[in-house]
C-alpha cells in the first residue's frame, strides 16, 4: 500500500529529506541574493548614459559588450550543462577541486544574475523620466540618483519577478545533482535507490518542494504589501510626536 510506504519513508528517512531541503534552500537563497546583486550592478551599468566622446565612452562600450555576452551566454545555455562545464572544466583547466556546495552556489548565482540583469534593466527603464530629472535638478550625479531615488523604486517594482526567480531556483537546484550536491533531489534519489520505492519517495520530495515554494511566495507577497504602505494618509495632528493631553493623562495615570 503506497500510503503506508510514504509514512514509512518519512519516518525512516526524515532527516535525509530535511537535510536535502536545507541544502536546496541554502543554495537557492544565497544564489538568488547574490544573483540579484549581480543583476543590480549589471543593470545599472547597462543603463548608464553614454558619454558623447572620450575614453570613458570606449570603456563603457567595451564593458557593455562583455556584459551582453555574459547575459546571452548564461541565458542561452541550460544550467545543467553549465554546471558540468564549470565544475569539471575548472578541474581540468586550473586543477581546482571546487567544493561542490560552493560550485553549486556559484552556478546558481551567475545564472540568476544573467536573468536579473535584464529584469533590473527593465525596471530602471520603466521608472518615470521625471524622477531622474528631479534628482539631476537638485544636483545628484548618476550614482547618487540611482542609489537614492531610482533603485529603491526599481527594487520594489521587480520584487514579483525576483520572487519568480527565487521559486525557479528552488526547483532548478535539482539539476545540480549532476555534480553530486546533496540537495533534495539527490537525497531523494539515494532514498529511492535504497528502498526501490520511486513513486513514494519522490512524492514526498514533491510535497517538500511545494511547501518551500509556496512559503516563499507568501512571504514575498507580505513584504510587498508592507513596502507599499497604506493608500491614504491619516492626518492625526500628532505628526511631530508632540504629546497630546489625552496621551499625557494616560501616561501619568497610576
Amino acid at each position: 500500500m503506497s500510503f503506508e510506504w510514504i509514512i514509512k519513508i518519512i519516518l525512516e528517512n526524515g532527516p535525509m529529506f530535511i537535510r536535502g531541503a536545507g541544502i536546496t534552500l541554502l543554495i537557492s537563497i544565497t544564489g538568488t541574493i547574490l544573483g540579484s546583486l549581480i543583476g543590480l550592478i549589471v543593470g545599472v551599468i547597462r543603463t548608464m548614459p553614454m558619454p558623447e566622446r572620450g575614453s570613458k565612452r570606449v570603456a563603457l562600450k567595451v564593458t557593455n559588450a562583455i556584459l551582453s555576452a555574459y547575459i546571452e551566454f548564461f541565458r542561452g545555455t541550460p544550467m545543467i550543462v553549465q554546471a558540468m562545464v564549470i565544475f569539471y572544466g575548472s578541474a581540468l583547466a586550473f586543477g581546482w577541486d571546487m567544493d561542490r556546495l560552493v560550485a553549486a552556489i556559484f552556478i546558481v548565482s551567475i545564472n540568476t544574475g544573467a536573468y536579473m540583469s535584464e529584469i533590473v534593466r527593465g525596471g530602471i527603464i520603466s521608472i518615470d523620466r521625471g524622477q531622474f530629472e528631479a534628482a539631476h535638478a537638485i544636483g545628484m550625479n548618476h550614482i547618487q540618483t540611482m542609489l537614492n531615488v531610482v533603485l529603491p523604486q526599481v527594487i520594489r517594482n521587480i520584487l514579483p519577478a525576483t520572487g519568480n526567480e527565487f521559486v525557479i531556483n528552488i526547483k532548478d537546484t535539482s539539476v545540480l545533482n549532476v555534480i553530486s550536491v546533496t540537495e533534495l533531489y539527490f537525497q531523494t534519489k539515494s532514498v529511492a535507490g535504497n528502498n526501490f520505492r520511486y513513486f513514494e519517495s519522490f512524492f514526498v520530495a514533491c510535497i517538500i518542494y511545494f511547501i518551500m515554494t509556496f512559503t516563499v511566495t507568501r512571504i514575498l507577497r507580505f513584504i510587498e504589501k508592507k513596502l507599499d504602505g497604506p493608500e491614504n494618509y491619516i492626518l492625526c495632528g500628532n505628526q511631530m510626536q508632540v504629546e497630546r493631553p489625552e496621551d499625557m493623562l494616560r501616561r501619568t495615570k497610576p
Binding site: 537638485i138 544636483g139 537614492n148 531615488v149
Partner: peptide, 19 residues
Amino acid sequence: YAYRTKLGMVFQQFNLFNN
C-alpha cells in the same frame, strides 16, 4: 552638479521622489 544645486527646479508633473 554643483551649479544645479544653485537652481531650484519645480516641474509641471511635480516629480516627487516616490520612494
